[in-house]
Design a binder for these strands. Structure first.
Lengths: 144, 144
DNA sequence: CAATAAATGAGAATTATTCTCATTTTTTAT
DNA sequence: ATAAAAAATGAGAATAATTCTCATTTATTG
């Protein structure tokens, strides 16, 4: 409750109830949520048009990551620490999405490879995303 | 024109005009197309409900890869050779999507890392996707 | 605390995708 | 080659996700 207000003021956006509620719902989950899951957590406390607007606000201040799961459903997650670079693991059985960190040596090999691609295609690469797809055998909360 | 019929018969699906037209449009492009781009190429020669059905058919016979671009627009591409493992490079200026191959040593480092993740999370990982985001400086056909 | 600016809620509008069903095309078996 | 059966198509209705509109409410500023 405190946290969410602090986040908003630190990013110089006005502190409103819908924003606090959405932030709290997102802060409450360490793994990403689909829009549906987020709406369920919020019940009817935030109008859906407002929910989309708030998500957009959070994207604008760069603390929200938005992507799509293997069914093309939109998924969001808060990105609070600058250094929290991570990737995602999707379970095709239960739909669970898990944040994963790749080892340092992998990330450094990837950086080198990215430099090669930048030269080859004359691109400036600003970001990347790695997603792994598979089946959990016992860890996902819905698969147990 | 020949190719597309062969592809269909090899996969044991009936040979119809809409399927031929969609395949030809996709064969014509080495890089992925958004649904909009595909519809433009097809003009009104294929009804939109049929287009979606045909794309679905192609997915079912495992020769179509579908994903979303950074604007969440659906993108499709044919996957004809089994061994054509590749990734994608997105230009945020012009929207161009380019197929890229990562070097062998990168892919092998990734494989090892994936094995580690499988153990750690008790997952069976079946596929992965790597996307690079940036700006082309002179190569994309729309950015010149 | 008043004035101004910004954000919200409710629902309409828009967009992408799927569904329905009568008609047409393709395949199969002769 | 042809008739019967099966599958696919087109047109548009239905659905789902997201964006937009605008009158009202809430937050910020001085």
């Amino acid at each position: 409750m405190r946290d969410s207000k602090k986040i908003l003021s630190e990013h110089k956006v006005s502190i409103t109830n819908p924003r606090i509620l959405v932030l709290e719902a997102l802060l409450d989950n360490k793994n990403p949520l689909t829009i549906d899951e987020l709406q369920s957590k919020l019940k009817n406390k935030v109008a859906k048009s407002t929910l989309y607007r708030v998500l957009n606000d959070l994207k604008n201040i760069n603390i929200l990551n938005e992507f799509t799961d293997p069914n093309n459903a939109t998924v969001v997650e808060l990105l609070l620490e600058e250094d929290s670079h991570h990737h995602h693991l999707f379970c095709s059985d239960c739909g669970e999405i898990i944040d994963i960190q790749m080892g340092e040596s992998f990330e450094s090999t990837l950086s080198k490879e990215i430099k090669r691609i930048e030269k080859k295609f004359n691109f400036i690469i600003e970001d990347h995303r790695l997603e792994l797809f598979g089946k959990c055998t016992d860890l996902c909360k819905n698969c147990i």
